[in-house]
Design a protein around this nucleic acid. Structure first.
Lengths: 364, 364
DNA sequence: CGACTTTAGCAACGCTGTTTCCTTAGGCAT
DNA sequence: ATGCCTAAGGAAACAGCGTTGCTAAAGTCG
């Protein structure tokens, strides 16, 4: 038996998460604000707020005195009440960040990994880094869990790494399970790009409905946020955006196909023609927009951010000229505000989101 | 004020819809089946079933006598308890179908439309066809509404057609509003491909989580079903799959870009090389799979179905050879089981889905 | 000082699914 | 025929949710 039906527990969790989402975007707010935004009666909001104050995630913060009438109680999010740690595992380094309930990055550190590292080596290094975090910050009882973002393919639901290209020790590794054992905290494993887009979504709040995080960093990928939630796909393998063909007669890609976006892009980049590389990425982004009708595109990844302005301009220009002209079709393109922390931070926020975000119901 | 919070009404609607979804896939079932599948207690299921029987959408259907013990009450869906009408508006014809609560097509008819027809002409023709449906079937009080599937761009939420290429009378037409006035029933307007994928999803049941309906019919489009729901995008304009670039140096497309999938595909098709056209579509489908990680691809559209086997084979082959080999990455490719009715039928099922499907909550 | 406005809170209420306990219906052994 | 066992159904009490209705508090304004 496997719960999919909605019950009162779900009801409560859903409405609490709704209030938390508002608290995160507003920081300080009143009962009436929540009531208006959610449609809950003021009375119901009082009850929800009381529960959240009891939990310690929000707190009363003075009163607002209106021109006339009784002063309104003001509440605020308590960012320091919960933390999560996120790790971004790439081929050569692991980046570890500490984020709080507001989605702010409190501490960030990078550490090299040995060539061809194995799971134990990674976890040892992470354990050291986490110890360091603990010495600098008092997280007693406030650490929600640990998120790990890395290249796929992997099985997010099972927490298993299926094995990336040129990583010998990473075939069918139950990483989440190992990590929970070693680190003693709940662990979520997800693709780097999906973690990244979660960071942007968590920080921007529920207004973000459909977005993609385009990442260029030893490969090209896209994390997808569709309909207000991550899109991982049937085998949690979505986002292999770099391996979409944009040039039928193009050069062969490592994946075997010809003219993959990644192959064409990297070809231009390696030839030193960053402008052409960015232009090609722009074509890919427009393809994504045509298919998915996104409202936000966030650019990220070490290789991209090294030439941030070039890419930003090229993608903006591609959208301006290649998407059919229409005033109602607005797309916002930005560079990630979290820089190279975005993947690790997103991995951390996935943990917070799992615990304090809007709950879903298991599929039938 | 605009309701986004969950309350008891939502709870009831959600659980009822869950039971309806099971009823639709199982047709006949017992209390225990529902209890096991949903996680609801048998008691709760009894209450839900009582409400649905009262509504007339399910009915008792005898008993099952177990080896020992009290006989279990058997229930069944009453397909004829609710109907919906769907219309597929193309450039030259309108196809109208009547579907029942089980998602079966009861009646189907096509009618030509005058060249460069306007909204009034369309609605007149639809009204005639709907009158004909009424003379053949007794739908008194059982007709839920009317769905219209047509080419975009359009605003699904507002029910407005923004104006398709080469259709002079269709700029910013509030079609849903007009139609509700003329036809006297609730009307939903959506893109043809999105309606189509709804038909497939509604018929297959909740097991279908991530799927695309690829449609080739005076253009190439893709209806997306992601995470168990339609994906329409921020401006309800998703699915312009035909206007994704697959050949950077390809021929110019009507949309202005170079090497769009549609341009390359149509070029091959017009040259009589259906195999090449299907091959190109296959590349596009693999692109979609790489990006979205879908489990099901359904092929549809008059132009495609004329050479159904050629396309089915080409797409299957493209997936077999171009998607990185992995036993866990399974994709099912089929031709639509509804043939040329799929769009109209899907439009009808969207109406049923809005009324009897799993309810969503409005975004914040 | 009283009327009015705005906000907050208490208590009762209606509805949800849950839990507990009992009844019903049939098969099977005695 | 009788008693026992098992599985399914049902009634009633229960707990928890948001809602409704009313009262109180805190301030301004005339």
């Amino acid at each position: 038996m496997h719960r999919t039906a909605a019950d009162l527990t779900f009801l409560r969790g859903y409405n609490e998460a709704l209030v938390m989402a508002l608290a995160r975007t507003w920081r300080t707010f009143e009962r009436g604000d929540v009531s208006e935004a959610t449609g809950l009666t003021p009375q119901a909001v009082s009850k929800v707020l009381a529960r959240l104050v009891e939990e310690g995630v929000i707190a009363p913060a003075g009163v607002r005195r209106p021109a006339i009438g009784k002063p309104a109680g003001v509440y605020e999010l308590v960012p320091g009440s919960r933390y999560a740690i996120g790790a971004h595992v790439s081929r050569r380094t692991v980046r570890l960040v500490l984020t709080d309930l507001a989605g702010r990055v409190i501490q960030s550190a990078v550490s090299p990994l040995p060539p061809d590292f194995n799971p134990a080596q990674l976890l040892d290094r992470m354990a050291e880094m986490i110890t360091d975090v603990h010495t600098r910050h008092d997280l007693a009882g406030k650490l929600t869990g640990i998120g790990i973002g890395m290249i796929g393919p992997l099985d997010h639901a099972a927490g298993t790494v299926r094995g990336a290209h040129r990583m010998r020790h990473w075939h069918d590794v139950p990483l989440a399970e190992f990590a929970e054992e070693v680190l003693g905290l709940p662990v979520l494993v997800d693709k780097d790009v999906t973690a990244g887009v979660t960071a942007e979504a968590w920080r921007r709040g529920p207004a973000l409905r459909d977005a993609a995080l385009i990442m260029v960093e030893s490969g090209v990928g896209a994390g997808l946020w569709l309909g207000g939630a991550t899109h991982r796909g049937s085998h949690t393998n979505a986002g292999e955006f770099g391996h979409t063909v944009v040039a039928l007669d193009g050069p062969q890609c490592a994946c075997g196909r010809h003219g993959c976006l990644e192959a064409v892009h990297d070809g231009a980049a390696e030839a030193g023609d960053i402008h052409r590389a960015a232009e090609v990425l722009g074509v890919g982004v427009v393809n994504l927009l045509q298919t998915l009708d996104l409202a936000h595109v966030v650019l990220a990844g070490a290789d991209l951010l090294r030439h941030g302005k070039v890419y930003l301009d090229a993608v903006t220009e591609a959208i301006r000229t290649q998407v059919p002209r229409a005033d109602w079709l607005t797309v916002e393109v930005t560079l990630t505000s979290l820089g190279e922390d975005v993947i690790a931070a997103g991995a951390a926020m996935q943990v917070l989101d799992a615990r304090y975000g809007i709950p879903g119901l298991a599929p039938l």
